[in-house]
Amino acid sequence: MIKEHQHYYVPAQSYWPIVGAVGLFIMAIGGVNVLHQQAYGWYTFLAGSLIIALMMFGWFGSVIVESQKGLYSEQLDRSFRWGMVWFIFSEVMFFAAFFGALFFARYLSVPWLGGLGAKVSTHTVLWEHFQATWPLLINPDPSKFIGPTQAMHAWGIPAINTLILLCSGATITAAHHALKNNHRPALKRWLAITIFLAAVFLSLQAYEYHHAYTTMGLKLNSGIYGATFFMLTGFHGAHVTIGTLMLMVILFRAFSGHFTPEKHFAFEAAAWYWHFVDAIWLIVFVLVYWL
């Protein structure tokens, strides 16, 4: 233990954090300007995003270089592990907010608007013709929020997507086993297959969105059903995209000869993240599509 402590690597000064802070700032200003349709909104936003991308490239790059130089002790490795675990936990809680909104809408606000229990007067005073159903196709005030013509079915594309993500969970584990057995070709193969499955998932998701918007009338603004549907599946999709980018970096590094059977935390972090995305999808599938 004492030896490990002596080798704990405290990095020298770094430009990347301040670059990242400036990037976030410019991104936020750009984001608001886009929403407010101000001049240069998109340019500002893209400039901020570019700075963030540059920062991530440079920052992760220097971490990789330091790691390849062998500067990192086992103890530092554990710091990274704790960091990743708690980061994923924070992501779980972010999704929890939206699942909470879905739960509240479905079991409380919509039934209450329909006059459940003691809320009879809410019903009669606000919209007395409203009927509580789920999925909510006719909104309380259909003149303000036009509902979808039909609900999304679970046993089409969503079920296929579930299968695809579950398979990708298996293939990433296969890649991990290959890495631990120092079987490099299998590592690259399984990683590539995982990335391929992710791309298929995202394409099917994009097709589903297109279908929802064009033929089902299911949109972000079609009431609480559309809002919860698109926010939950959309944020999940965004996280799949992030996870896929991680896996691509890992594949690239695998081709560059990084990782040993003993030390490959970056791989494990990406795999954890992938399993997290997978688990969230299962909940999305059950609560958003199925039940």
Partner: peptide, 12 residues
Amino acid sequence: GTSFFNAAGGGD
């Protein structure tokens, strides 16, 4: 145009 916090769209 989402209606998380708007009862007209089923939110609250």
